[in-house]
Structure formats: C-alpha cells, structure tokens
Design a protein around this nucleic acid. Structure first.
Lengths: 108, 108
DNA sequence: GCGAGATATCGATGGTTGTCGATGGTTGTC
DNA sequence: GACAACCATCGACAACCATCGATATCTCGC
C-alpha cells in the first residue's frame, strides 16, 4: 500500500480479498489456522456455525479456489489447511508481515 | 489469524475487506496512499481509470463509508486520504504490521 | 446572478453472491 | 451387497453490486 498498485497486481489480489471478505469465511480461515496441526476437518467446521452443511462446503470451496485453503482427503474425512503463500500475498499488502513462510506471524 | 475470530470480530472486519475486495478500490487506496502528502484529489483519481466519474465517486464513497478513506473538501476540490486506524485493523489480521500509526509500513 | 467546472446522487440494468433443500459420490462398517 | 456417515454438487431464489447516463449540488470567477 506504499506504492501504487498496477492494474494487474490489483486484479490479482482482489480475488483473494474478495474470498476473505465474508464473516463466515473469515472465521473459517481463523478456525483452520488456529486448529491443532494447522488443519481442520470439515465436520468440525460445520459445528462452529449455524449454517447448513452445503453452505459451509460452498464457502470452503470459495476459499480453496482462491488458493487460500488446501484440501486433503483422508478416508471419509476432508481436511483443510491454510495456504501460506496466498495469505502471504495478502499480508504483503499491509507491510509484509507473514510474507516469509508462516501464514500469520508477528513482526520479529 | 492465529486465534479463532469471534463472530463479532469477523463481522467487524469483513466489511473492511469487502470494501477493499475490488481491483478499482484497491488501486484507489494505493493511489491515495502513494500520493504526495498522503492525500489525493478526486480529479487525479478519475484520470487514472477508464471508468466514468460517477463510478469512481461511488467507489470512493464505499471506501469512505467503510472508514478506509477520510474526506476533506478544499474549495472546489475534494481530497481523500487513507485512514490509518482502519487499515491497521486489517493489517492486524495478518500479523500486526501497520497497526501502530502508519497506514502501511515495514516490519521495523 | 450567471456560467463553468468538480463531485455527488439517482435510477436502471446486468451480473454476482449467500443461502437453502435435495441429491449424488465416496468411504467405512456390517 | 446394504447401509450409514461425510462431503460436494445442483437448482433456485432473494439480496447485493458494479457500472452507466442523467441530473443535482456546490464553489469559483466574472
């Protein structure tokens, strides 16, 4: 945010922000990030909301397609984990914190 | 993003991200932030896009109502400048960079 | 007061989004 | 093979959004 974004840069980052710009998806991201092992089962996530299962599945898909969440299936269960790179790209906008390897970290 | 967001926190931050989740508004923010004196005249911003003047005005209004831009009128011209607090609230999500006094700064 | 320039507002329109119920595919168990 | 559990997809609907042209509002200089 210190130098003007090119049209391309803006059009690259906007979809990430758009994916995050929903209270449900924001909480989904934080739930996954804060979960032990940095990954969470869909069944756990479903229970954290008053929304229907298809709706949660839809939001997870949006986050996945934006590149913010990675999907891995183990048996019957599906686990999602935060994609560090995508989060870093967004964090980079706001000063570069989290741009190294972690999804979210403090300065120093 | 290291601890689960409360529903309230998520619903407070989501509108900020929603306001930013548009290529035009992202570029508007960066143009204002990068402008000399950290504020920019609407007339300058209009010229930076291929969009109509009402459309730019609309986007500026969205950013203003989200608390991301502050408005000040000087004579015929209207100047916008980045609101440090709102940007810090978003930056806080991604590691706390920019949460002190600047709208966007590096770590240290 | 009047015309000109800079912004904001209004109304319309086409596209996108959040949510749901119903359904389908996959995996594990009996 | 039959059944149950988990998750994704589909179709539908209401709400929202980005954009535009037209118009209103404000300020300046004459």
């Amino acid at each position: 945010m210190t130098t003007p974004l090119s049209r391309e840069a803006a059009e690259g980052i906007a979809p990430l922000l758009k994916a995050l710009a929903d209270p449900v998806r924001l909480r989904l991201m934080s739930l996954v990030a804060a979960h032990e092992g940095a990954e969470a089962c869909v069944c756990d996530l479903n229970d954290a909301f008053d929304l229907s299962q298809p709706t949660i599945s839809h939001h997870l898909k949006v986050l996945h397609e934006a590149g913010l969440l990675e999907r891995s299936k183990r048996g019957t269960w599906v686990y999602y984990r935060v994609s560090p790179g995508a989060v870093a790209a967004v964090a980079n906008l706001f000063g570069g914190a989290g741009a190294e390897s972690k999804a979210a970290g403090a300065c120093g």
